[in-house]
Design a protein around this nucleic acid. Structure first.
Lengths: 347, 347
DNA sequence: ATGAAAGCGCTAACAT
DNA sequence: ATGTTAGCGCTTTCAT
């Protein structure tokens, strides 16, 4: 029997020690501070020295250690994006936009999943807080007072959520819901059912408030059901509740729920839109190829993610000039995408 | 004209200075090291002192600064997950699984988007390298030699990619492709077209190799087209190419491409599956409600993400015991989900 | 333009 | 069980 090789574990192969600023300085024959400047203060070093330092650094595979940079400067060049559920396709757009804006501002983006849970969300912020320059909280479920407490320690920008004193980027739900109701009214619907999402959802509340107001304007009757977890799996229960009322139109909290409803309606032999019209929110991946394709309110999610990161980057910059007035709320337009899931009310 | 208030910018409200270990130590009347131990070495401090320290820390809103922790210990308790495209729903499962496993191992997860670009991917690893304990690279597009170089400095675990000496978690494409071909053969198809994804895609290569081998076994003829970017937008071009050949069956690189193909076929009045059968890979969100619902090879993506993070966590632990032999490749089963997009070959 | 030196918040010997 | 001390890698005055 042979003695096992005392080599490193598989996959745990011997790793080269990471080059530090000191290594590079020694190799380049300069002081550590010069190497530092060559990287983070290019103006204040002779550009031939700088070129030399950079070449040596490249050769040694040196990359600045963010932890050490952060320690001294206090800035981490990292921002965190927190979403309620990363598997919800709605957030893909936000993530993409945030990623692009972060790259442009030379920031590293960290993504956290709050798991639809305010407690988890707060823990996440607390945990990540010291490691990042700020947070973009998407559809935050934390109550206003918690947000306020949290914002004492952290820079915060909200997406699809507003809270006193905090910068936010929100979709224009007032206009959006008016578009939805006008669309239904023009097709002769006299009433509709709203399938509500989570009770703590700020945008859910805005959606319902907008729908109610618009319904009143158009003389429609609006009823709210729910709350439901906005997943496809909630579709059957929601759809069945609607069918029991004989409603001619349904507006769902979001597309995922709406798609679940469509599936259930098909299962029960209810024709859409002949018997029931269905409208969603978000225009997620899949809304255009589900059956029938879904009429939905499109938001500029990519832009929202990008704007939020830009706003955060602005807050991070040393000068963050007082512009006076309240914390800015940026409202992004929404647009109703009419597809085959909605049509004339049955006679 | 009144002079503008010199107050802080909106949203940039005065922020409390973060409590440090020294602040807490002073307030609790102990040494900084005791505070440190109270948090990260509970066993070695009197539990009443510990309780007191923790209470004071809580009151001051103290949270350990990860940057400082990382600096001394070298470990960051953070792992990075890199995906080619965060908006691709395929990766949602991987992300979710990775997130769960990271939480269980008390690791913070950072998500990076390689933007389908090997160069960007390498830059990302370089940039994030010093800030994390290791990487899970999903469907990495980096060539083997680059991976080897990169792994000298970083702990790496691969998902749906294998490379000499590296730990990886892959789907069982050999079995999966056999299932697909057997399904088509049993429906009387004599040949099929494979719509290839990106040329650098390792799993794409595995898929094609598996399909070819299985086709040979079953006496089917297999042709490869492409490469195509695996997006819905590539669907029309891919579908048109297929139609020109008169093929009776199409296997697409992944579901997103397959859905694009389905849309185009519908547009051109080609009936699925009566005239053409369509099969995808991945079973992503949407595969069950597109029209017609897509036959596809399901992978255990959530499990893959979780296993990869667990493997990485194991590599990170001090002991990382040599188990001998090659770096482990973990193969996860795949399963063909038969839906309405595939059926008997036309006569 | 560059170097020397102090210190960011924390951990890890080493003392007590 | 707790305190003291010396850095981790980097940035930042302050000299030169």
């Amino acid at each position: 029997m042979s003695v096992p090789e005392p080599g490193p574990a598989p996959g745990a192969r011997r790793r080269r020690r990471r080059a530090t600023i000191t290594t590079v300085a020694a190799a380049a024959g300069v002081a550590p501070s010069t190497v530092s400047r060559a990287f983070s203060n290019p103006g204040r070093v002779n550009h031939v020295t700088r070129a030399h330092v950079l070449a040596v650094a490249e050769e040694l595979g040196y990359a600045p250690n963010p932890a050490a940079q952060a320690l001294e400067s206090g800035r981490t060049s990292t921002v965190a994006l927190v979403v309620p559920d990363i598997t919800n396709p709605y957030f893909s757009g936000v993530v993409k936009g945030a990623e692009r804006a972060a790259a442009e501002a030379r920031l590293t983006l960290v993504i956290g999943d709050a798991q639809e849970n305010p407690v988890h969300e707060e823990r996440l912020v607390r945990r990540l807080g010291p490691a990042v320059d700020g947070f973009v909280l998407t559809a935050s479920r934390m109550p206003d007072d918690v947000l306020e407490r949290v914002s004492e320690l952290n820079r915060i920008v909200l997406v699809n959520r507003a809270s006193p004193g905090l910068t936010s980027v929100v979709a224009d739900f007032a206009s959006g819901t008016r578009q939805i109701v006008a669309h239904l009214a023009s097709h002769g619907h006299r009433s509709f059912v709203f399938l509500g999402g989570p009770a703590e959802s700020w945008s859910g509340a805005r959606r319902w408030a907008g729908l109610r107001a618009a319904a009143e304007e158009h003389g429609l009757e609006a009823t709210r059901f729910g709350p439901w977890t906005p997943t496809i799996a909630s579709g059957p229960a929601a759809a069945d509740a609607v069918l029991a009322t004989g409603a001619t139109a349904v507006v769902a909290h979001n597309d995922v729920l709406a798609i679940g409803v469509l599936q259930r309606l098909a299962e029960r032999g209810v024709r859409v839109p002949q018997e029931v019209s269905v409208v969603g929110f978000d225009d997620v991946f899949g809304a255009d190829f589900c059956h029938p394709p879904l009429t939905t309110l499109a938001e500029r999610t990519t832009e929202a993610g990008a704007r939020a990161v830009e706003a955060l980057a602005a807050l991070t910059r040393p000068g963050a000039l007082p512009t006076g007035g309240d914390a800015p709320v940026r409202v992004l337009p929404t647009q109703l995408v009419v597809r085959a899931s909605s049509g004339p009310a049955p006679r």
